[in-house]
Design a protein around this nucleic acid. Sequence first.
DNA 1: ATAGATTTGTTCGTATGTATA
DNA 2: GTATACATACGAACAAATCTA
Lengths: 83, 83
Amino acid sequence: MPDEIDRVSEQWFFLQLAAIIRARIERGEYEPGTLLPREPHFMQHYGVSRGTVRKAAEELARSGHIRRIKGRGNLVLPPQDWH
Amino acid sequence: MPDEIDRVSEQWFFLQLAAIIRARIERGEYEPGTLLPREPHFMQHYGVSRGTVRKAAEELARSGHIRRIKGRGNLVLPPQDWH
DNA sequence: ATAGATTTGTTCGTATGTATA
DNA sequence: GTATACATACGAACAAATCTA
């Protein structure tokens, strides 16, 4: 899992980004109970727009890896919540 | 005026949708000074893409039924603005 | 208590690529 | 060949919830 967006890949940016962040969560690099880095962090680090970061976050919320909290951030969930 | 898209009709989806919304405005179901339902509402309710909803909105803006305001929504205009 | 900053949420604007009729 | 329709992606502005000084 390369830790950057492949811009010539067939796969959409937001799915690539979701896979990257999901892998980091599952490796324990983002700990349950803590907040993910903010949207601007991912925008700058991966060179994508806020919309793309947010679509990736939607994917991670769908798969139970994070819970999105308005005004606070994206809460990393423990393995038992993943699906 | 059936309140859904006729998918086998000769007429384009965006023109059908514009006619549906225009009729609702003219019947007073969407009141002047209020905002139309958001783009995602129409996408889901009529089963069309955002592009189609936006083309319908362009038609309604052209005919003076709404004014489109970035970041806020589509403002319903009073009868004297229709043309 | 409140005023401002931070952060996610919402919404319209624009561009591009693909598929279809 | 052209126009419609769909989806991704980026940009800009406003709204709401939360946190902080």
